[in-house]
Design a protein around this nucleic acid. Structure first.
Lengths: 143, 143
DNA sequence: GGTATTTCCAACTACATCGCTGGGGATGCC
DNA sequence: GGCATCCCCAGCGATGTAGTTGGAAATACC
């Protein structure tokens, strides 16, 4: 898969939180984990990362939990992925200094840009819309 | 980096072989490894994979080596990457069955397609042209 | 104020993968 | 036969990934 489990878990959680954001919704780690079948103590770490990245806000104590720090339309997936993947600045060893390696590096650059463009061009709201549409068509089948 | 070392090494070797392909050129593992600063016993494995994938042809015995099995214009990078990365069919565990996971899966699919489109749309000849252009402009600096 | 609930912090483990090395064996030119 | 070269496969250390654990801090509620 294109994403690590960390990233998938984080994105899924954001989707759940985005769905109830208009009501200023708050969810607890355990709730999300249970609904999505994710180990809760593990999910905790992802949500902590997202809070440190200013994407989530947390409320401690009983009846606490997490909520989006911003409306879903203002959260780009690129930002989320960086936050969960951990940046990894200067990834990889310095490219070998041959024309051939440089050409390959150029290709890798184009791949990275294409990926970045998609991630940058997708907001949490976009994914939420997609989810709602998916749920709609599931309902259709029941009729 | 977008590629593993395996993939980078393999692609670099193909570039070297493509450059001398018009002369039906043959290179030995040790030659390529020395020129590119790659551990030769390791590079051996990549070239073996490429031979199994019908991208290279090998000649055994003294004065042996490897050569392209086809002209560079007929070798797509997508094919090379699959061959070196090892397919990894049904990558990742079966996606969780929730609308949220499905949406994330869809996004991953789009990322994969974008990558595939670039890899499919690039031939070894394209990279070779890029290399030659790069070498040309390096020569320019010497004047 | 005490207690239960929940987030916060930081380590630790198990397992797989990656990059690389080594030991032979097969093949073919001389 | 001897040497050069490719061929196959096994193993090893470092790193990363997924998940676990143990507790400390904050806060609502009684």
């Amino acid at each position: 898969m294109a994403f690590s489990a960390k990233t998938e878990y984080g994105l899924v959680s954001l989707l759940e939180l985005a769905a109830i954001h208009p009501q200023g919704g708050v969810l607890q780690v355990a709730e999300i984990a249970a609904r999505q079948g994710i180990p809760d103590r593990y999910l905790e770490q992802m949500l902590t990362s997202l809070r440190r990245g200013q994407i989530l806000r947390s409320i401690r104590g009983p009846r606490g939990g997490y909520q989006l720090a911003r409306p879903p339309a203002e959260i780009r997936i690129a930002e989320v992925v960086v936050c969960l993947e951990g940046e990894v600045a200067s990834r990889g060893t310095a490219a070998r200094q041959s024309a051939e390696f440089e050409v390959i590096g150029g290709l890798e650059g184009r791949l990275g840009e294409a990926r970045q463009a998609i991630l940058e061009g997708t907001s949490l709201q976009d994914l939420l819309d997609e989810r709602d549409q998916r749920l709609q068509s599931q309902v259709m089948y029941f009729i």
